[in-house]
Design a protein around this nucleic acid. Sequence first.
DNA 1: TTCATATCTGTAATCATTACAAATATAATA
DNA 2: TATTATATTTGTAATGATTACAGATATGAA
Lengths: 145, 145
Amino acid sequence: MITDMNLENMQRMKAAGIRPSYVRMKILSYIRSASNHPTADMIYKVLAEEIPTLSRTSVYNTLCVLEGAQLLRNVSIDGEGMRFDAFMPDHGHFRCTKCGNIFDLEIDVKSAEVKIPSGFTETRRDLFVYGICPHCSGFDESTKK
Amino acid sequence: MITDMNLENMQRMKAAGIRPSYVRMKILSYIRSASNHPTADMIYKVLAEEIPTLSRTSVYNTLCVLEGAQLLRNVSIDGEGMRFDAFMPDHGHFRCTKCGNIFDLEIDVKSAEVKIPSGFTETRRDLFVYGICPHCSGFDESTKK
DNA sequence: TTCATATCTGTAATCATTACAAATATAATA
DNA sequence: TATTATATTTGTAATGATTACAGATATGAA
């Protein structure tokens, strides 16, 4: 199936100077469509159903290549394994300390007043907010209480 | 040697409801004095010289206890193992993408304009800035160029 | 088609972290 | 002080994610 997202991913890879191979397309598409910031293992397990010959090593290799091409970013926190996110600047992450899930936050990270000491060159920022998500705190979406 | 920091650490542990054992005191003091956000292994290797019976498991156990008591925090990033930091609210971290070192940044993370969606409860924030440190970019401290 | 190169795969190794049970130290009580 | 219960520490073994590496396959160029 050719979708807009697939076309876009293909163009992004070409622009980044890497070949849009089948495995790379599949992995990038999956991470962009998944909302849960999957680990390498999650990606492997889901895609292996569709690509029986897929190997774990290929997943790691591909993630490394895509990260190098800045089409993905690594949002690992608390040393709980690497989690991946399609690269989109200027958003943060909320991490539920109870269930461990990670949610995107719409944040302009540039709004933080940061004094970078002289000599340091900034290329990117990440803001992590820790706390409890609605599901774990028993929040009722209908009543907002 | 009894120092102000040691007394303070002892009081902190008592206040947090954990016993200020020898190993706990040593590990907390070391992390507070080290400026490099050490990994569990770094802590083990340094302290094992002074405490020959120290075990790696004790280091991990102690880090877990101290983190639970909120006397430490985990500043792991990029899935490169856990790194520890004496707990001090409101500061961020600069990570050099070349040498991998982590530097403290004086940041009021609360200054970031974050809209937490309804139902989410925030307890803590971390801001990571990625880039190149002075040493890796050949910055000359004397001339500031 | 042929060749060179890029990509992918499978197995085995590595290394940080955890599980667990035994040993030791500490505190509480008699 | 002696005894007992509990907390802390230790050592070994297991786990599990990640990486190394060499061979297989696919791709693009000549």
